[in-house]
Simulated scan of single mutants.
Amino acid sequence: MATNVLTLVGSLRSGSTNAQLAEAAVATAPEGVEVSVFQGLENIPFYNEDIDVEGHVPAAAAELRAAAADADALLLVSPEYNGTIPAVLKNAIDWLSRPYGAGAATDMPTAVIGTAFGQFGGVWAQDEARKSATIAGAKVLDDVKLSIPNSVVRFAETHPKDDSEVVGQLADVLGKLRAAAELN
């Protein structure tokens, strides 16, 4: 039985190198791992407890929660915006954290990866995403990291799925997510 990994991408930009990194995870997932990328984070309203009412949860938020409930693990792919996590990804984590103690992210094996234009590959944002997901109740694999610097240059003419180093690193991340999901 395959491990289902739900991927959330923190960049909404067309041509995003983080979206391409997620596409590479889908295209090159190792045997026994199925990766899907959630579409529609931009449609989820900012978390507000007033609208998080059973039977009236906004459709886009309900779809995210359902997708996470069907997954065995989460893969968060984060660029770095002004030194931190993009609002759209933080918002998704907030929706997945509720109801408190029983949200869709609770006890979910989770890894955070990403790429950024700068020389550190977005590590600040990825650290913030790990922190937020941990507080949301996810089982964040703190030792599983993939930060790819200089994304605009590195992926100017090569898609991440065609970069053997990246493919190998993705296989390692996904393999560790699978192992964590099997123990869960």
Rank of each mutant, 00 (worst) to 15 (best):
D107S: 14
V33G: 04
G114P: 12
A2M: 14
A138W: 11
T3Q: 07
R65T: 11
L21G: 10
P99L: 11
Q126K: 09
E182W: 01
N91H: 05
E23I: 03
K145W: 00
P30T: 04
H56R: 12
Q119H: 08
V152G: 04
T3P: 08
E31N: 13
V33K: 07
T134K: 11
A116E: 07
A133H: 07
A67H: 08
A19K: 14
S14G: 06
T110K: 02
V153M: 13
N4Q: 15
L41M: 13
M108D: 03
A116W: 04
I44N: 12
E63Y: 01
A59F: 11
F46N: 04
K161C: 00
T84I: 10
H159N: 06
I113R: 01
L12N: 04
P109F: 10
A138R: 09
G83Y: 14
A92G: 11
L183W: 08
Q20E: 11
V57M: 10
E63L: 05
K90H: 10
T158N: 01
G168N: 06
K161A: 15
L141I: 09
A69M: 09
G175H: 08
P149I: 08
V123E: 02
N43E: 15
V112N: 03
S14D: 14
A24C: 09
G40W: 12
F38K: 01
L89N: 00
A156R: 09
V57T: 14
P30D: 07
E182F: 01
D172Y: 13
A27Q: 15
S78Y: 09
P160R: 08
R178A: 15
V5T: 06
A71D: 03
S147V: 13
E63I: 00
P86Y: 07
H159V: 00
H56G: 00
Q119T: 14
T84E: 05
T84V: 10
V33S: 02
V33H: 02
A71S: 14
L170I: 11
A19I: 00
V167F: 09
A181Q: 07
L75N: 09
E128N: 11
V9K: 10
V166R: 12
K145G: 01
L8E: 04
V167A: 09
F117Q: 13
L74G: 03
